[in-house]
Design a protein around this nucleic acid. Structure first.
Lengths: 226, 226
DNA sequence: GGCTGCTTTTGTGTATGCAAAAGCATCCCC
DNA sequence: GGGGATGCTTTTGCATACACAAAAGCAGCC
């Protein structure tokens, strides 16, 4: 949702939003490295725009924590140490665990059907080894859980924090067995939800997220990223 | 303490930041009501500035969720229904509970001393019935717990969400017995931390926050606010 | 009388210009 | 020779100007 990637109304998209998304993506993919200075005029030239929308984009990124503004001294990409990334992962893991606990107690039959449907459909994706499709499913699965908390503010926060972390998800599921194990962990979570055991669902979700984090950490250390 | 909020350099503060803070405060205190349109030129005149810094301030507020921008249709103050406020309170309560659980397992002796010191000092404040002082202590108390999680990202998120909710704190402790009860609840939380029982600390913290929320809800309903 | 199409008007989105601060390099003085 | 002052450059912060989209007002038409 609210992705903006496949917009048919491209001419309506604001230049500042385009720049913001582009910069966020470049920071996410590592094209713009941590600590790099972001010169307004330079960026304006690169995007064929003036400094005004660039500045607005940078301010929004700053509010999201992706860059830091030092008054009158320019903007730099926020430093992402391995420790900080692990902190972010732990935070997301805890929030996901919190969400699934609340969701277990509050999910409606209709929402439960939807979740089961999603989960069942994902089995075929795993068999095909389709990483991109699984990534999409995975997002839908977790967002369905956020939604089932029946706390829209919490759901928004969870999505926002998850999106910030998604900067580093590109490497997360690149290992085949991780995809299998991810599905198995989802299965275990689904079972706990079905049994109405929110605490167990919570523990399993936390473990699930930390497993993903560990896989990523190994990848980062192996490739000397960040 | 990578706080960075030592604002002794006021003259260097950017106009856009001043405007952002002023607007955030006005939204917080209800001066600017939910759904109100924010005209850029009008605001620029009010602050004796041009539209440029006003726009930047509005974009930052939008990134923080306090206002909503509708492309080419202006900016409005985000609607805060009672349900949404309760959702926010629940989210803060859950995050605080999460933090105190982690903090219980990770707090250092030095941090524990600091927390005990804070808590002990607050007893006098309660006896004096000094609401403002207690509010300050309360923030320090909770931030000390965030810090003790040894997860700086989580701490930042907790503070950010708490600040957003603080919009409505003005009414929170206006009832005298709530101040007493708040201290007693802190006492119970401290005990659980001392015993190293993170789960109990977590449950007590959640109850503590939800008690505050209930007190606020009663206030809102009684005064027909929001 | 209500709806539709045009016109006006208001306000956003972007560009450009200017002033001041930060970074720097050179130079002077001790 | 080193440290600090001084001017130059670069870049930010803010203001102003302009273009254009959307809402509002108005008139004519069905």
């Amino acid at each position: 949702m609210t992705d903006g990637s496949d917009d048919t109304t491209e001419d309506r998209e604001l230049l500042s939003d385009r720049i913001r998304n582009a910069l966020a993506d470049e920071i996410a993919t590592g094209k713009l490295k941590a600590g790099a200075a972001l010169d307004e005029q330079h960026l304006a030239d690169r995007f064929g725009a003036s400094r005004t929308p660039v500045r607005e984009a940078l301010r929004q990124l700053a509010a999201n924590g992706l860059v830091e503004v030092r008054a009158r001294r320019g903007v730099v990409v926020s430093r992402m140490t391995p420790e900080r990334i692990m902190d972010m992962f732990e935070t997301v893991a805890e929030i996901e665990a919190m969400c699934v606990r609340l969701a277990t107690y509050r999910i409606t039959p209709l929402e439960r059907s939807h979740l089961i449907e999603l989960h069942d459909a994902s089995e075929a994706i795993v068999k095909n080894g389709d990483f991109d499709a699984y990534d999409n499913f995975n997002r839908a699965f977790h967002e369905a859980i956020y939604h089932a908390t029946h706390n829209s503010f919490l759901a928004e926060q969870a999505i926002a924090i998850r999106n910030r972390l998604m900067a580093f998800r590109r490497a997360q599921l690149q290992q085949e067995q991780r995809l299998d194990r991810s599905w198995a962990e989802h299965e275990a979570i689904m079972q706990a939800i079905a049994e109405g055991d929110g605490e167990m669902a919570s523990r399993r979700m936390r473990a699930h997220m930390l497993n993903a984090a560990t896989a990523l950490r190994r990848f980062i250390e192996a490739n000397k990223l960040a």
